[in-house]
Design a protein around this nucleic acid. Sequence first.
DNA 1: GTGAAAGCGCTAACAG
DNA 2: CTGTTAGCGCTTTCAC
Lengths: 338, 338
Amino acid sequence: MTTTNGSAVPRRAGIADVARLAGVSVGTVSNVLNRPDRVTEKTRSRVQAAIEELSFVRNASARQLRQGRNRTVGAIVLDITNPFFTEVVRGVEDRLAEDEYTLMLGSSDEDTVREERLLRRFEEQGVHGLLVTPSHTGIETLLRMRERGVTVVLLDRSSPVPDMASVAVDDVRGAVLAVAHLLEQGHERIAFLNGPLTIRQCVDRREGVLRALADAGRDPESLVEVTVESLNADHGARAMRDLLDGDAGATATFCVNDFTALGALRTLRERGLRCPQDMALVGYDDVSFAAELATPLTSVRQPTHEMGWRAADLLLTSAEPEQVLYQPELVVRASSGG
Amino acid sequence: MTTTNGSAVPRRAGIADVARLAGVSVGTVSNVLNRPDRVTEKTRSRVQAAIEELSFVRNASARQLRQGRNRTVGAIVLDITNPFFTEVVRGVEDRLAEDEYTLMLGSSDEDTVREERLLRRFEEQGVHGLLVTPSHTGIETLLRMRERGVTVVLLDRSSPVPDMASVAVDDVRGAVLAVAHLLEQGHERIAFLNGPLTIRQCVDRREGVLRALADAGRDPESLVEVTVESLNADHGARAMRDLLDGDAGATATFCVNDFTALGALRTLRERGLRCPQDMALVGYDDVSFAAELATPLTSVRQPTHEMGWRAADLLLTSAEPEQVLYQPELVVRASSGG
DNA sequence: GTGAAAGCGCTAACAG
DNA sequence: CTGTTAGCGCTTTCAC
């Protein structure tokens, strides 16, 4: 049975329905939608009326299939719950909105499986491009995706290869600022609550810590390193407990991020220790509430919103893969005795 | 010129290429992809090899176009930068991941234009469903979308009509808890830093405030209301300044959310006033850092992650539109003198 | 300025 | 178990 026309089921209206109602061809409707200038004012308004009438909504799948491209961008961050990423994502969103692009979002949780699944799914969706904070995924997967036509911009991670775009912030420098500051305050023995070295930031910040020590002529052995599994407050609290129990004699602690520092602060309070007198603290990220904590937290600020905005901008406009490296800034507050 | 086969341009591999390389038909490849059990082990592995070889990635547009449906869910929140929504979104994401759905995200910024644009775009994308925190958009737009086959679940807003699903938390009750608590602490004159009454939460919380007052037999006129334009720390700080300058004699302030309270706290500190002695404070949302502030903040906790999870779950599994209403919980800390 | 028709890449009957 | 084939809804030449 050929569906010549017939009284159709109450299905979603298509371009053909609009054409029929407006008494024009589908081609004309398509023109109204995509190149309104090529259509007479009169025809256009008639078509528009039909569109309203049927509350027609374009089918992006069909459109994309035909056009090949897509107005969607995928972003994969480590954890959307982390304010750092939240602000970056907001920057991304704001830039995408300017060009009417849609954001698809996923948190990888630093989990390779989850990350690769997201990558695959986004690619299937035919995203125009991808903004990724790779956790463990080698760059290879991303390079391969690029070969298949997906623009990739690394987020919060500088590219190891010259032909891939990236927007990052100099983490080594950030850590140098933090530790140099603590050394200037006269601290002799510094602890570093760091995350797993599978995370680039952790590696870089560690390098910065060591560099600051070296620059000041200190013995790298004087550094007390404690590893947290995950960069959140609970693990930070636990790490600070371990540190104190270890009795390593540190008088200042540099935390790999503010959440870790938040946890550390909690432990100090629980143990009745004062910050900065008994233990100075420096965090990283300068999250919104850093200034409002029980002890306002010294932290390293990064231009989060700007980073996201820029990354999306590179994705949408840049022909040549560009590598942007922002410089962090130390914000001194009470927790470091400044 | 018919493209019989020919040495194609280095274009992305399609199902046909895979079929050719594996020496089977496209139907078989499709079967391997979608119903592997209907294919011989041998054929399957041959096809799999071809897929690897060509690094074939399914084209979701084509797939969706054919299937009609889509494994994508759109979510529109007021502002992804707000931890409340961040956590809700994370819950959504976690539930979606279980069923291999992808999340499309947008912040409406309480801006009707932005919100409607997002709605339209998501619908065009053919999302399976939509999770929306409507700001000003009337329910009508959403009802119309539902008629066109998009499942809609209201997020953080209970449905005004019985046949639309929603996941919300009892905001009236939350405000009652907060204010009743302050009254119990002996405060006679209470201030309420509220946002614009165009936001549902603000309306509901205001109702709760008035109810608590009434329940305690207080004169509703004793309430000092200050309006903040936007629910962030800066506006909160300004509002507290106005409040203090107004000299209304309030000894306790209920803030419509924690960020507003954060700002209020900042102002108190700037003016050398102590919290809770000079001004008690209660916030709303119980964001992660509420407990770690200079003065740990009493706040109303909502099951954010759970709400997001549940909303996504309703979207994916529920036949009947269900309306879930969670109960908030007051978490008493130092800022209210508890 | 408008219409007719050929696919985009895939899935799902159905035939073999 | 595998192959053939007809569209999904839209855009886009190419005629008119």
